[in-house]
Computed example of a mutant assay.
Amino acid sequence: MKFAILTFPGSGSDVDLYHAIHEVLGQEAEYVRHTESDLSDFDAVLIPSGASYGDYLRPGALALSTPVIESLKEFAASGKPVVGVGNGFQILTEAGLLPGAFLRNKGLKFRSGNTKLTVQNAETIFTSEYEQGQEISIPFAHEYGNYFVDEQTITELKNDQRIVFTYANDNVDGSTEAIAGVLNEQGNVLGMMPLPDRAVEEIIGGTDGLPLFNSIVKRWSEQNVSQA
């Protein structure tokens, strides 16, 4: 399976994603710069965290002016998996590929650490290797982690089971309904604020992020590798 890892000026966890995919999972991964305009050769796209363009104007906003975004929209429309973590989630909302917007943390400060998440939907292409209701520990690092959606959108997300992760123990930063990760309507685009790429080896504090990437590979294998 071949993963594209999009990079923008200010991207920070692109190296972490590459390590998770290439070194830990043993899958093919390639950095794709924001100046590229063709993602058709890839099976999945990952958008890293960081501070694209220094979070100028709004986190993720200036990424929309880059050539790769139009290709990303075409890629998502094709049904292939797309994951945005941290700033990548913010880019996906700015691009209109996911609903909602991001506000500053409720405490108006940058925060980092580990957070407990509850898996709300274990029947997606990103979560099939988790158990329904499972609690996992995933690192986070953000100042604009306060995910906001209106009441109508919340109703739609709940009815369609598109809320994938919620904060389990607390919701310090103020995200609507404690949402930590959501899907698009088609179910092939996932955005989440915590960073699963930083939880793929015991030596760095745990492996609770690994099932997410394994789920993607498993679904691709089921669809593309013939069974003997």
Rank of each mutant, 00 (worst) to 15 (best):
V85G: 06
A29E: 02
D208V: 03
F148T: 03
I5N: 00
L57Q: 05
N105E: 13
V200Y: 01
T176P: 13
E123A: 06
G113T: 06
G54D: 13
A141T: 07
M193V: 10
G88L: 11
I21C: 06
F148D: 07
S137N: 11
P196E: 06
K116T: 08
K109F: 02
L92M: 08
Y167V: 12
Q27P: 04
K106D: 04
V225D: 03
I203E: 03
D160Y: 09
G145M: 00
Q134P: 04
E36H: 04
Q186G: 07
F148Q: 10
A29I: 07
L17P: 00
G26P: 05
L72H: 00
A168Q: 11
H22A: 10
E201T: 13
L103M: 13
V217L: 04
P67F: 02
D41G: 12
I91N: 11
M193C: 04
F213W: 14
D43H: 05
Q134I: 12
D16L: 04
N184S: 15
A44H: 04
E30Y: 01
T207A: 03
L17E: 03
S221Y: 12
L17G: 04
A61F: 08
V119P: 11
A199P: 11
S13G: 07
V68R: 00
P81F: 07
G12C: 15
R33F: 09
V85E: 09
P48L: 08
G145L: 01
N214H: 10
V149A: 03
A122D: 13
K73W: 12
E30W: 01
L195P: 06
K106V: 09
S221A: 15
T207H: 00
H19C: 03
D38F: 00
A95H: 00
E123H: 14
L157I: 14
P48R: 04
G60N: 14
A141G: 09
F8W: 02
G145A: 03
Q223Y: 01
F89H: 10
R111S: 14
N184T: 13
G60Y: 08
G181E: 07
V149Q: 01
T207Q: 03
I179R: 04
F75E: 03
I138L: 02
H22D: 01
D208Q: 09
S11C: 09
V164E: 05
G113L: 12
